[in-house]
């Protein structure tokens, strides 16, 4: 059964393009061009996944996430952006998005990413994996509130590295001799760390590199 999706992007052209490309692989139950429209559409149609543009007028994707996230925690967000600016991506992930893909992604990969997010997995593009590795690269300078969230385990690092190298989950599982399920668990743990880490560098780091 195809996941129910709301498309949020301020360019109608892009929405119709995505809708046409995805065809019947997803069930588009709503579209919105502004954060306000998006909030209304999500409340009324209760999708499984929201495909969320990072850059929109009136607060962008972040405004939608912050409004809907606490209210309807079951709805999953997949961020979609032309921006490679680390601070934008990290901000959305920290606000609760389950993954990030660029707008140049192929239709097949997008459909795959949507269904994975719908199933509760997280989606790391190579670029996002690179961001995370970069952000957690140095050991924390200041004593942290909860060290569990401030370090990646060696295994998580390995998974992220393979993601950044362009490996699919299946390939990672084969490479590391673990199950796909374990790869998924590592990925969601990393995402949780990214969201909950109190590493103050994370913010500063993202601001330092305007772009990767």
């Amino acid at each position: 059964m195809s996941p129910r999706v709301v498309l949020v992007d301020d360019h109608a052209m892009f929405r119709s393009g995505v809708r046409a490309e995805l065809g019947d692989r997803v069930d588009v139950v709503g579209e919105a061009g502004t954060p306000a429209e998006a909030i209304a559409a999500i409340r009324s149609s209760r999708p499984e996944v929201v495909l969320l543009d990072v850059h929109m007028p009136d607060g962008g994707g972040l405004a939608v996430l912050e409004a809907i996230g606490p209210e309807l925690p079951d709805i999953r967000f997949l961020a979609l952006s032309v921006s490679d600016a680390a601070e934008d991506v990290i901000a959305l992930i920290r606000a609760g998005a389950r993954g990030y893909v660029t707008k140049t992604i192929s239709a097949d990969d997008l459909a795959d990413a949507i269904s994975r997010v719908a199933d509760g997995d997280v989606v790391f593009s190579p670029r996002l994996a690179g961001f995370v590795l970069d952000a957690f690269r140095d050991s924390p300078v200041a004593p942290s509130v909860d060290p569990n969230f401030d370090q990646l385990t060696p295994r998580e690092r390995e998974v992220l590295r393979l993601l950044a190298r362009g490996y699919a989950y299946k390939e990672i599982a084969a490479e590391l001799f673990i199950s796909i399920k374990t790869v998924e668990t590592h990925a969601s743990n990393v995402l949780r760390k990214l969201q909950l880490s109190s590493r103050h560098q994370l913010t500063r780091w993202a601001a330092d590199r305007r772009m990767l």
């Binding site: 190579p126 994996a129 690179g130 590795l133 970069d134 690269r137 950044a164 990767l212």
Partner: peptide
Amino acid sequence: ISVEAVVVG
């Protein structure tokens, strides 16, 4: 072609 370049550090 398109090259997805990711550089850490």
